[in-house]
């Protein structure tokens, strides 16, 4: 990394600390938080200096708790129905080892790969990865061919099977396009954490940690330096942005 980049990161870090302090002091996070705690101005786009990631501690993820799923549905305007044709951006997955019988509980969502197969296969370029590593579907040019759903190793994508109304203004969704977890990009862009992470923290389980993998001072980078973490389907070499511990 170049000298100037390092110093820039230093600046950013100081700033993040300062804004965290401000946010911490504010009793009602909604009020004081906005307008001040921006790490980047609206004119500034997402930067490859950051890479957003998530660390999920499966030992803390509680059986029967569905708070992350509920929060996601509320934030993104999903119906919450779980039929074969309904969208699910995040789901609770139970896995049980066939020999030992050991069980793990974990939320499964878009893994925001560095080398996402969905982006590779998309014929129009609607499946895309933002500079900061967030994998998104540009619904403006999605033709609804569903090839990305064939390619995703995590079954993270859903196809909108019916016309929708009353969408969340910040999360446009509609019939005929493919969609998936966005890391709540609308929240991340104003320096909030994804809704699922917020809900998991609020529930007291603290199983989900969100942050910048490129920033060595971030909580997530520090945590990943000290514990063993797992990539799902690491054999595919996709370098996922979501990592699990405890499996």
């Amino acid at each position: 990394m170049s000298e100037s980049m390092n110093s820039k990161l230093e600046d950013r870090r100081d700033f993040l600390k300062a804004s965290a302090l401000v946010a911490g002091v504010a009793v009602g996070p909604g009020v004081l938080f906005y307008g001040i705690a921006h790490s980047r101005s609206p004119e500034e786009g997402a930067s490859s200096k950051q890479r957003w990631g998530m660390l999920i501690d499966t030992t803390k993820c509680a059986v029967g708790c569905n708070d992350c799923v509920t929060a996601c549905n509320t934030e993104n305007g999903l119906s919450g129905k779980t039929g074969e044709q309904d969208s699910q951006w995040i789901r609770k997955l139970n896995i049980k080892h066939l020999q030992t019988g050991v069980e793990h509980n974990l939320p499964m969502l878009c893994q925001h790969c560095e080398n996402p197969p969905c982006v590779d296969v998309c014929p129009t370029g609607a499946s895309m990865k933002r500079a900061d590593g967030i994998v998104l579907v540009d619904r403006h040019i999605c033709i609804g061919c569903r090839y990305c759903m064939m390619a995703c190793p995590y079954k993270a994508r859903s196809f909108v099977h019916e016309p929708l109304t009353e969408q969340n203004p910040e999360v446009p969704r509609g019939k005929g396009c493919v969609e998936s977890c966005t890391f709540c990009v609308q929240r991340v862009d104003r320096d909030e954490t994804p809704a699922c992470v917020e809900a998991c923290t609020a529930s007291g389980h603290q199983a989900m940690l969100f942050g910048d993998l490129n920033n060595p001072e971030s909580d997530i980078a520090k945590a990943m330096k000290t514990v063993a973490t797992t990539e799902v389907r690491a054999d595919l070499g996709l370098n996922t942005g979501v990592r699990y511990q405890g499996i």
Binding site: R12, F15, G35, H38, S39, S41
Partner: peptide, 12 residues
Amino acid sequence: QPAVPSLMPSNG
């Protein structure tokens, strides 16, 4: 706009 006051870091 401008939405962000002088608290912005000097990140060029």
